[in-house]
Write a protein that binds this DNA or RNA. Structure first.
Lengths: 339, 339
DNA sequence: CTGAAAGCGCTTACAG
DNA sequence: CTGAAAGCGCTTACAG
């Protein structure tokens, strides 16, 4: 009946493109998706018709018909940590040119929230998922497995045997920080950390191991605070550690914002850095190289992680079995003035 | 034929929920969407069936049938400016509980890229759009108008008569910065800016106007650089301005990262702040209150802008005509040590 | 290499 | 307040 069709969108449809180019809708569909079986001349015609009409495929119809959307879900624990912003940008740069939409889910370091996000996003039938690390609820793991959506894990290495991951060894990074301070002649090494997510704790372990290897264990010089990491907290924890253990002569911070807060607090309290206390940060956030003194920090390959994870996922989607399960992108110690 | 149905998703469907609760699919649909005409007892049954099956509606099917998705598109010029992160978070906090998905488009301060994003996102049939400011291409404007998708503009006030906006007066903010410095007795006022997007230029105008009102115009003390704003650039521009005009005694920075870079550079060059040069930043980013000296800055209501814009859009969707076209959320001058 | 038929899982009108 | 019918705009299988 109703050709008055208030149900239609007004946007050009595949059928119109097909009509204009004199082929069937299926052929038009194939041509537009770049399916190779279409004769080049027909494909040309279809492309021309599509662009002359300003045709853009309806993603909902496409998803419904194929039971798979052109969306990739990325789950990250925080948006306020610059770290993940860089990773997200890199993911976008890889995915968008391929016509894939990136759905971002921030679970605020809350495993139950991540589970809800997974439940909801699975309904979108994403063609792939990019996850942060390996810690999640059993329910999350089951939903993910049942959905058979291809996943790539970011930031950490490891996980189950068949898991794909792109990241670096958090443990080794923590170790490298400690060894650098030890090589600089420091003997009373502190560790200041916040958030305390799995990756922070892996760095803590690496740090402790290096101290143990050098016979310099000092659990009394650790300040672990579960609050979110921030500049303000870094200053506070630094003051507290110094008051409690005036002989501390080197500190590793689990994130640069803490280190930045500490170096500013030191300036305020006239504590000489690095003469009295050397400092090493983590992530090498943009501000660190400009601090006074300039912060030594471990530069993490966060953009490369996003890019690598996105590319690994694309390879999976293209049916290319990815060669290696774990991609270790390493890290780099940027030695500056604070150590 | 194929009840082997590899086309189905395996996920529970509305039909199954309907069968389990003994109603028709339409009634189940209505109950799940909270359409009020459904008898409470039936609605109860449907809800129970849905949750026992773990039913989550297929957004693609929903969007296809209703010609409208449950997605809201947010277009922002940058992700590396903490400013927009806070706005995005606030938007998510309002939208997600309502079951709306937030699609984020970053156009990197590039109007042509914004146009592409609009073209592509319109295919998703979003139920609404949140835009940054009013500057965009004619094509963008036409597509938006033709789509009839409800829009709310963020950050700036103004626009066309029927435009909805939530923000604050960038012009007044620039003026307030200048007046504060003048009240502090400063007479040679500089302006350091980067990115030079429309909002920066509006602040510049306000700043200039206040100088003019006080007879203190000094165009030679303006350093405008189109590069992206960053801490490093702030330090560089500050050094350059000081070298060029040693008598500058107050500076307004269009963004806090520039001001942070300048205050750190001043520390390095032994330029006393505020004795020799007072500084006022913009946005009051988290690090500013911790600088040495602590930065005076204009705190912008970025989370409130996101929240307000999201709520205004929801009101529009609910058919409540929003009372006011412009929502001025103001700003606050945070006076600290640098001025 | 191309196409006619069927169907993806919902909601929109329209009745009653 | 409830439902049978039709349709949203694509793609999947199946033929040829």
């Amino acid at each position: 009946m109703s050709r008055t069709g208030s149900r239609t969108t007004g946007r050009p449809t595949l059928a119109e493109v097909a009509r204009l180019s004199g082929v069937s809708p299926i052929t038009a569909s194939r041509a537009l998706r770049g399916v190779s079986t279409v004769a080049p001349e027909l494909a040309q015609k279809v492309m021309a018709a599509a662009s002359s009409l300003g045709y853009v495929a309806n993603p909902a119809a496409r998803a419904l018909a194929s039971a798979r959307s052109q969306s990739v879900v990325v789950l990250i624990p925080s948006l306020s940590n610059q770290l993940f912003i860089d990773t997200l940008e890199a993911i976008h740069e890889v995915m968008r040119p391929r016509g894939l939409e990136v759905l971002i889910g921030n679970y605020h370091y809350d495993i139950a929230e991540e589970e809800n996000l997974i439940r909801n996003y699975l309904a979108y039938q994403p063609c792939g998922m990019l996850l942060t690390g390996f810690e999640r609820s059993d329910a999350s793991r089951q939903m993910l497995a049942a959905s058979r959506v291809p996943c790539v894990h970011m930031m950490e290495l490891g996980g189950e045997a068949d898991a794909l991951s792109v990241g670096f060894s958090q443990h080794e990074a923590g170790r490298a920080a400690a060894r650098h301070l030890i090589e600089r002649g420091r003997r009373r090494l502190g560790f200041i950390a916040a958030q305390l997510d799995p990756r922070v704790m892996q760095r803590a372990e690496g740090f402790r191991q290096a101290l143990a290897e050098a016979g310099l264990q000092a659990p009394e010089l650790e300040m672990l605070d579960p609050q979110p990491s921030s500049i303000g907290l870094g200053g506070t924890l630094f003051s507290r550690l110094l008051a409690k253990a005036p002989d501390v002569d080197g500190i590793f911070f689990c994130n640069d914002d803490l280190a930045q807060g500490a170096v500013l607090q030191a300036l305020r309290e006239d504590v000489e850095v690095p003469r009295r206390v050397a400092m090493v940060g983590f992530n090498d956030l943009p501000a660190s190289a400009h601090m006074v003194p300039r912060l030594t920090s471990i530069r993490t390959p966060r953009a490369a992680v996003g890019r690598g994870a996105a590319q690994a996922l694309l390879a999976l989607l293209d049916g290319k079995r990815v060669a290696t399960g774990q991609q270790d992108l390493g890290f780099e110690l940027m030695v500056r003035e604070s150590s």
